[in-house]
Design a protein around this nucleic acid. Structure first.
Lengths: 95, 95
DNA sequence: TAGATATTTAGACAATATTCTAAATATCTA
DNA sequence: TAGATATTTAGAATATTGTCTAAATATCTA
């Protein structure tokens, strides 16, 4: 749970996530949205990948990035725990 | 939205949140749970406070810290947007 | 009011993170 | 296979963050 939180702590990476929410994009297309070099964006993508928040797939010369919703679900569960949301969720208290 | 994400990126601060989820605690009681000096914990508390994730209230010599669920709700909404959860939420698509 | 307790503030230092340029790797196409 | 395009890797510079010690502030009580 540490890597995803670290990954989300940077605004550039959160913006990348917002872009990928709309549709899958190549590393180059992502870079176009930022005032930053491609190696820097590549580094951010690598951190998102390590955190398992995105996945990548090469198609010819391009590498397409896409969102990995699984870890986001886990994060949402973490937050629910904080605010003690427990309707419909398996919890000892409900048994 | 930047401060809360930054605040949550540190494991010590997330552990503090987990402690406060159970009950309000003084700065000293919080510090007892960590292998770290009190000034360091105080600094972490200050970051959580700036991010509006916790609030503090002095009672005599002690300062009690407690969780501020509002910002957590906003964070959950941010995550819902990512995974495109939109039941019961006001969205253009539903109009 | 002096001393004890709880906590924060200030300032320094080391560890991490972000960004850059230059170079390397992978793939496509003429 | 040579050159073009897309992307990553390596390494360095700078900025930010986390932690510490020492000192300051606030409150309580004898």
């Amino acid at each position: 749970m540490n890597l995803p939180f670290k990954a989300l702590s940077d605004p550039t990476r959160r913006k990348i996530i917002m872009l990928l929410k709309e549709k899958d994009l190549t590393a180059g297309e992502i870079a176009e949205h930022f005032n930053m070099t491609k190696p820097s964006i590549s580094h951010h993508l690598s951190i998102l990948k390590q955190a398992d928040l995105v996945s990548d797939e090469r198609k010819g010369q391009n590498i397409y990035y896409s969102l990995n919703t699984t870890v986001f679900q886990e994060l949402i569960n973490w937050f629910f725990e904080i605010i003690d949301y427990n309707e419909g969720v398996n919890r000892d208290e409900n048994r």
